[in-house]
Design a protein around this nucleic acid. Structure first.
Lengths: 166, 166
DNA sequence: TATTGTTATACTCTATAACTATA
DNA sequence: TATAGTTATAGAGTATAACAATA
């Protein structure tokens, strides 16, 4: 791929430029891969950062079910991420005394330190991805992406309903 | 996840709204999944559409290496996609007489028919994803995403160079 | 019975490296 | 020697389904 990287850096191939879906997919995977490689020095991956972010912003009574809902993944997928984080002493599982089925997740001090470092990396990445784009445009991109997210969720929901009806 | 889908449809969780990387990743995977599910009735997946699109737009002397370059994937990843397409009679591999290492890929008539159908699905999906967004904003989103793509490629390149230097 | 978390399993996508046949 | 394509293999990420403990 080395042969093409120079061209790729200068301009997107013309055929992709008019396909929003492809642009979104490519931008998503590229930025995730970049984030992954920069997170390596903290020995965590994007999914760990996602989980830690949610915990950081919802310090009270955060269960694995809640996490799965926030991240829109299956609860079973949360298990291994929390396992990793717990093994590394970044979070603790605590049985909820009020409902002993539940694990309440608590970020440790080391966890908070790592979150701070990871947030720095995330902010830096965002600066790099948005280089040359004025703040107004950045806000606009955010708004547009949230709009796409909403539309996509609606479309997905419509398909689910059509599927169960037909 | 059914319990959360209603909330998810109405508003993105607040913590993701200020993280461009997460928004990009989510929008990318969501739109790809949606595209995948709509392509199902043609019995192809997004990757097949990508390959067919490139072939459609570069009808002359398109090799697998060229494809890999356009799609920014490893040449080895192209093989199974072309296998699928050839098995279904949508493309043909033809040895380049001028350089017998090369396969020149040719879209069959059936392939062109499928491309037309798939393009319709892609256009419809784009309409759905962009619902409520005026044309001017859509162009802007495209421009911003291409900008992100360029920045990401540059950042990736910088890391590769730093890695091989340090 | 329903729900939380867990395990086992499988599937998709992609990358790496070793191989072949040509150049 | 280098390049085009292929194969085998492995890894990440995620989903599904069955299960245990608890409600």
């Amino acid at each position: 791929m080395a042969k093409n990287s120079e061209r790729d850096r200068d301009a997107a191939p013309p055929w992709i430029a008019d396909n929003i879906g492809f642009l979104l997919a490519k931008a998503g995977t590229l930025s995730t891969e970049l984030f992954r490689s920069r997170l390596e020095r903290l020995d965590v991956r994007p999914r760990h950062y996602s989980v830690l972010s949610v915990l950081h912003l919802h310090p009270e009574q955060c269960t694995q079910q809640f996490l799965a809902g926030c991240l829109e993944v299956e609860p079973s997928s949360v298990v291994s991420v929390v396992d990793d984080l717990e093994d590394r002493g970044l979070v603790e599982r605590r049985r909820d005394p009020g409902d002993r089925r539940r694990n309440v997740l608590v970020v440790t001090e080391r966890g908070e330190e790592l979150i701070a470092d990871a947030q720095e990396i995330a902010a830096e990445l965002e600066q790099d991805l948005m280089a040359g784009v004025p703040e107004r445009r950045r806000r606009e991109l955010r708004t547009l992406l949230i709009n796409v997210l909403g539309n996509a969720s609606r479309a997905e929901q419509a398909e689910v309903e059509a599927g169960s009806a037909g």
